[in-house]
Nucleic acid binder design. Structure first.
Lengths: 231, 231
DNA sequence: CAGTGGTCTAGACCACAGG
DNA sequence: CTGTGGTCTAGACCACTGG
């Protein structure tokens, strides 16, 4: 075979061998030093190629044991979670935002427990609609932890969505997300302009800064919305 | 400040500066050589730390221009797409699989166009139910491209799901996935043991080997299913 | 053109874990 | 104890791209 010299060409060759079943799932492959000799490059270069593949779940690497092809290739799909306005604009549509209501109230049990906050403490709740080309795009129902983000009380969120304001002004270290399907209620149907009981894609996210919850938001997308990604 | 010596400690320090707004979104940070001097380590070490952060979307790096904190931190959520049996077993539940029907027939227009195959060509269609602790877990509706996987005709898929058989036997290079919410039909309600029009989370995937489609599958999860991930 | 990140090298030492 | 991957170094050259 030819002698790859860059880490990408090494990676390509390794991928080819996996794809062509020269190295089968679960099998060990030669160690880095041997591969470096075979490919005529430095071990560092081989390491870079293999480490990258391991991060993508195609290889299992363990000290002393060695490197093997992942027995069950774990497919990792990456979703980019972006500000809704940017998502709409990327689609070439006109974005509009409207605040529906705003309240300073204690959260429900579900919200307070998801956010690990005292149920008695008042939080800021915002509901808003995002539109694309004047059609409903997504409905946002958000709770903000005022103990962590006191400044939110001074914002009216009339023109800038909490979505964007928080991202630009409040740091976070971690987020937990889940996706599910829910039926449209009377209230959501009205705002998303769809029939009651329509199936809607829902994204719920709790954002944390260290161990303190910053905000929890449920986004309901308009009927037919698809979340795309690839492997 | 202290002098980090490993790439992870360099990364931690960079993360801290971003988090504490010492380096603000959109701002340029010192170049690799300067940081290496400041931290008392090799430039390679700084490079490793910054490259990793850039891959995670926290930094924007461009030759000559330099490195800056990403103006809009793009949150990347990674979903692990695994074999359904393993997912169920990981939950500590008993897995069961049942083939519902199997047909050798031409695909619908929707399927043939998604898979870029000639609509006249017969394909293998399998519908099956995955159960967890004897309750419906997910309903699978799959089309297999026999031009790419002729061997599938010799499998009856009575006991091994196409899901697993394909993963273990047929290589692929790419997959396109989308998630959406759909309403349950009479047929799906019957198999998932739910009311008609219940909102269901649907995952549709088309798998490719180079530029030839291998299989297309729609998985409908039982009501209430949540797809979890974190940032 | 020149400054920046991107990569390769050869060698070294270390951390971990299998035997 | 020993083989493996994990990492660091110092230096070098390259590729891209902004000015």
């Amino acid at each position: 075979m030819t002698s790859p010299r860059t880490w990408q060409s090494v990676q390509d060759e390794v991928l080819r061998r996996i794809h062509d079943r020269e190295w089968k799932p679960g099998e060990f492959i030669p160690n880095e030093a041997d591969l470096a000799r075979e490919f005529g490059c430095a071990r560092t270069t081989v390491n870079r190629a293999l480490r990258s593949l391991a991060e993508n779940g195609l290889l299992d690497r363990r000290r002393k044991a060695g490197t093997r092809v992942a027995p069950r290739p774990v497919a990792k799909a990456t979703l980019d979670i972006v500000v809704i306005r940017h998502e709409v604009e990327r689609l070439g549509k006109a974005y509009a935002y409207g605040l529906i209501d705003r309240a300073h109230a204690p959260p429900s049990i579900a919200v307070s427990s998801s956010m690990s906050v005292d149920q008695g403490k008042k939080m800021l709740r915002l509901r808003a609609l995002h539109k694309a080309d004047n059609a409903p795009y997504a409905l946002e129902d958000r709770w903000i932890n005022l103990a962590v983000v006191p400044g939110a009380l001074n914002q009216n969120f009339d023109t800038v969505s909490a979505n964007e304001w928080l991202l630009e002004n409040v740091p976070y270290t971690r987020g937990d997300i889940d996706f599910s399907a829910v039926s449209s209620t009377d209230w959501t149907s009205q705002h998303l302009a769809c029939a009651k009981d329509t199936a809607l894609l829902a994204m719920t996210r709790v954002t944390w800064d260290q161990d303190r919850s910053v905000t929890m938001v449920q986004v309901l997308f308009a009927p037919g919305h698809r979340l795309r990604t690839s492997l």
